[in-house]
Every structure is written in structure tokens, then in C-alpha cells.
Computed example of a mutant assay.
Amino acid sequence: MPCLVTVGGFFGDEGKGKIVAYLAKRDNPTIAVRGGVGPNAGHTFAFEGKEYKVRMLPSAALNPSTRLLIGAGVLVNPRILLNEIAMFKADDRTYVDAQCGIIEQQHIDRDKSEDHLKSKVGTTGTGTGPANADRALRTLKLAKDIPELSLYIEDVSNSVNFALEAGEKVLVEGTQGTYLSLFHGGYPYVTSRDVTASGICSDVGIGPKRVDDVLAVFKAYVTRVGGGPLENELSEEEAKKRGWLEFGSVTGRQRRAAPFDFELAKKAVRLNSATQIAVTKMDVLFPECARMRDWNKLSAGAKKFVEEIEGELGVKVTLIGTGPELDDVVDRR
């Protein structure tokens, strides 16, 4: 910080929500701003025994002093957004860029009925792909056209840049993962936008020289939902045996699993110009480290794994997630 961008290093589901929620609590940014595609990305975090899920608001929502912004590149489902604003009592600190695209029911219907998207690509059925297609055709409605969003409309790019010029902290939250990028992922098994750090900055409206740090978030193993290749994919039985059997936070679909992929991680570091790394779910890979918050108390095996990541990727692991709670983090910054 003052401007930190978080991105997913694999195929989404890396635990970015928990990391962003932790950073918002620990560093108290003035602004948290969300880039990425839209409500097809669900971020989950837990605090004091209660689990929270967001699909529209930044995962910084629990910090009452942080303004919650949604960048112009993000697609908005007004119903989902308004429900989340009410859930977090964030009515007076949530702002949506006037140029955010709007997902309507027709986009959801098209997403669910289009065989290529539903059966081959394995999309979430949230309408994001068809809505982005309409945006490319310049027929999509924008947030400024929707009366129920009128109280929340703002020029998000101006707000973020003014905050940075004033020396304030800004936390930029990416969604999905590097290899779901429309341009850099395994096409066609990708999302409908670029979701690398460059794409996220474009969504928010900040130039590359505004960014101080890029935090790439990796899970201690790899998971993905939907179609597409997954190197060294485990069988369902083996994933279950290892405790890696998970389900998507938006669709509820079972995630496919594989061991940590160092080659994919290296490329993700390059694509995103990552300056820091967060590794989540270390407690799943090393149960003896569950809920630990001190580097010195981690097991030798866990430390060796982290050091191997640092050695192979050439970037420091600054945050290590060791449990579901917000503060179950080893902070090495």
C-alpha cells in the first residue's frame, strides 16, 4: 500500500475474499474497490464464527470505515448488490461507477440455455457472458440508467485517483483467477474478461504507475470449476481423502483438484507483475498448522513448502492462511 492490487493466481477459488477481508481489517484502507467480471465470482470469509459471502461488494465490507466501490468494468446485478448493501448496512458507503454494465434476466436466461456456455465451457449461469457480449455490441444498459441505483452512482476512477493523490490507502480486489482470463487463460474455458492485474486496474480506472504492490493469491493446492485442462488432476476419491474436495461458492458445483502447480504459478507471477504472494488453505495441506498465526510455530514441512514457493517464484510469501477465520493468518510483511 497505498495502492495494493490483489489477484488470483490459478483458476479462482484461491481464497482472495479472506485475504482482502483480513487486509481491510488490519490496514484500514480508505477505499476498497472491486474489479473483475461480476456476480459470477463469489468471495467468502468468516469472522467471529459467522460466514459471509459476497458477489458484488468488495470483501472489505466488514470494515465500517472503508468505502466500498465497484469499478466501471464490473457487471452489476442490482438485486444481488442491493441485498448485500442491506446485509452489511453499507448504504452510506457503497458507490457504483455510472458506467458499470447491468445484468438483466434475459442475460441469465441466455447463459443457462446456451449449450456452448452451459455444457462445454461450464459457466456459472449468472448472465455475465451474455451481458459482456451485449456490452461489446454497445447495447447493454449501464448503472446510470437504473433508478434503484441512482443513490449509489459515482465516478469511481476519480474517487480512487483522488484518494491516491491524497496519500490514502486503496485496496483493489480482483476476481476469478489468472487462468480464467479471456486472453491469458485456457480459452474457451475462461471468463468473459481479462482478470489479470492489468485488467483489474483497467476495470477500476487506474494507470499502472498508480500501483505500489500486486499480491498474487494462491491456494496450497489447485482447484477449478467447470471445463478445461487441469494438470495432474486428482480423482474425486483421492481429493476427498486429502480433504481437497470443495464446492463453488456461487454454483455449488464440485471443484476439481490437483497439487500446487509451480509452472502455472511462475507464469502468473510474470503476467501480474506480482510483488507479494499469499498462500491460503495451508491448514488443509498441513493440518498441524491449523489456526496458527506465528511463522515460528509452523511445522518444518509447512515452512519448507513456503520456502520452495519463494525459491521457485522469486517472490516473498507475505501472508499465509491457516484457517477459515479472518485472523487465521501468518503475516510476514
Rank of each mutant, 00 (worst) to 15 (best):
V214N: 02
S235V: 11
W244N: 00
R255C: 04
A220T: 10
P229F: 12
A258G: 08
L230N: 02
F260E: 04
L234T: 08
K240N: 09
L245N: 11
K240S: 13
N232A: 12
R224C: 06
G207W: 13
G207L: 12
L245F: 10
E231N: 14
R210D: 01
R210A: 06
G248H: 07
V217K: 00
A216L: 05
W244V: 00
K209S: 12
R255M: 03
Y221D: 03
V214L: 01
D212G: 11
Y221L: 06
F262V: 07
A265E: 04
K219Q: 01
G207E: 11
A257F: 09
P259F: 07
K240G: 03
V250C: 08
R242W: 08
G226T: 06
W244A: 04
A220F: 05
Y221A: 02
L215G: 01
V217Y: 01
G228Y: 02
R270S: 14
R242F: 07
L230A: 07
D261I: 03
F218G: 02
P229M: 09
R210L: 04
E237N: 10
G207C: 15
P229H: 13
G226N: 04
E231S: 15
K219Y: 00
E233V: 10
P259C: 07
G207Y: 15
K267S: 09
R224S: 09
R242T: 03
G227T: 15
Y221H: 03
L215I: 00
F247Q: 14
G252Y: 13
G252C: 10
F247A: 14
Y221Q: 02
E263F: 13
L215C: 01
T251G: 10
N232R: 11
R210H: 06
K266V: 04
D261K: 07
D213G: 04
V250K: 11
W244G: 02
K240P: 02
K219V: 01
G228I: 10
K240L: 13
R270I: 13
I206K: 03
V269R: 02
P208L: 06
E246M: 12
V269T: 09
V225H: 04
A216T: 13
D261R: 03
F260W: 09
A220L: 05
V222T: 14
Q254M: 14
G252E: 10
G248C: 07
F218A: 00
V217R: 00
I206Y: 09
G226Q: 05
S249E: 10
G248K: 02
R242Y: 12
Q254T: 11
A257W: 09
F260A: 05
L245M: 13
E246T: 13
